Amino acid sequence: MSEFTKAFDYEKEFNARLYLDTYFHLGSGSLADDFLRFELANLHKIFTSGGVTGKTLIDIGTCPSIYHLLSACESFNEIIATWYTQTELHELQMWMNKDQGAFDWSSVVKHVCELEGKSGKCQEKEDKLRGKIKQVLHCDVSKNNPLEPVVLPKADCLIAAVCLEAACRNQNSYITALKNLSNLLKPEGHLILAGDLGANYYEVGPNKIFSLAVSEQSLRNALSESGYAIRELVSFGKPEGADFDNSDYEGFYFIHAQKP
């Protein structure tokens, strides 16, 4: 088995629009409500603390989601979004172009605006993020330069949200991916990771999509072995009595790490 998920195989199983419809309507009562509230609160905190700011942020595996960039766009001059499959790219392009039929992010945007004390500014928030996204590039974390053939100046910050667990098939490839991502970062640059703990899969329609099951300890080990210093690691356990059956997740994590 390849150590990394191939784009062709992933695209056969992963329906980008169905994924968005399933997991990104905040208030739907799904497991995503817990995930979104946890991650959005931590993203808001990290990007309003004043410690994680700069010129350029590269988001690893943006497509088809934008929720994790809503707070980040307040702290960076430019955002480089990335994609791995064409269907994911298509969803982002529809939102960027304000196309009829683009996914409706309003429930998530409303929540972020409320966190920021800017209720009623949802359209302005989406437009601000659109304006901050300066490039949309292909990304492959298995490569030494994940943005190959493009070579960019080193970034101040990287985000990888619910991305590496889909791309990496085992702990060794996860570590390799983190080392490759480090090549995109300035010295003392920031790395933000977010995702599920203990999940071997999540369902998108009838398909079970592979996820590398990670734990707090495996994440700590991977970051240490790839040369990052952890500044903060917070987690949220699966609530007692939660009966969501579209993933075998055990909780969620949020990590702020830094390159030496």
Rank of each mutant, 00 (worst) to 15 (best):
120 G>D: 08
125 K>S: 11
7 A>T: 11
238 K>F: 00
76 F>I: 05
146 P>K: 02
125 K>P: 05
25 H>R: 15
87 T>L: 09
14 F>K: 00
2 S>W: 12
75 S>W: 03
43 L>F: 12
109 V>T: 14
7 A>D: 12
50 G>L: 08
55 K>N: 15
50 G>E: 03
215 S>F: 02
73 C>H: 07
189 G>A: 08
127 D>S: 09
252 F>E: 11
128 K>Q: 12
71 S>P: 04
145 N>Q: 00
11 E>Y: 00
36 L>K: 03
205 G>R: 07
173 S>C: 05
131 G>H: 13
145 N>L: 00
46 I>A: 14
116 E>T: 01
230 I>F: 02
191 L>W: 01
144 N>S: 14
163 C>G: 05
224 S>R: 10
101 G>W: 06
253 Y>P: 06
135 Q>H: 13
104 D>L: 04
127 D>P: 02
51 G>P: 01
189 G>P: 02
174 Y>R: 07
252 F>D: 12
129 L>Y: 01
212 L>M: 08
48 T>V: 04
239 P>L: 04
103 F>D: 01
115 L>T: 08
70 L>A: 07
49 S>C: 13
205 G>M: 01
211 S>H: 15
136 V>I: 15
259 K>Y: 06
218 S>P: 01
205 G>P: 01
185 L>E: 00
191 L>E: 01
234 V>G: 10
187 P>W: 07
3 E>I: 02
86 Q>A: 13
111 H>T: 00
143 K>N: 07
232 E>W: 00
209 I>S: 01
220 R>A: 11
37 R>E: 15
225 E>Q: 14
106 S>M: 15
116 E>R: 15
59 D>I: 08
19 Y>N: 10
98 K>D: 12
19 Y>L: 06
50 G>N: 05
97 N>V: 09
83 W>R: 03
60 I>P: 08
255 I>K: 00
43 L>Q: 08
71 S>C: 13
29 G>R: 09
225 E>N: 10
120 G>L: 11
184 L>G: 01
254 F>W: 06
82 T>I: 12
90 H>Y: 14
100 Q>E: 15
31 L>C: 10
108 V>L: 14
70 L>C: 05
118 K>L: 09
57 L>I: 13
184 L>V: 01
8 F>N: 09
44 H>V: 00
76 F>L: 04
179 K>V: 13
231 R>G: 14
68 H>S: 14
191 L>T: 02
126 E>S: 14
116 E>D: 11
145 N>W: 00
189 G>K: 07
53 T>E: 11
42 N>L: 07
46 I>V: 15
108 V>D: 10
163 C>A: 07
77 N>A: 11
190 H>F: 14
236 F>D: 09
13 E>V: 10
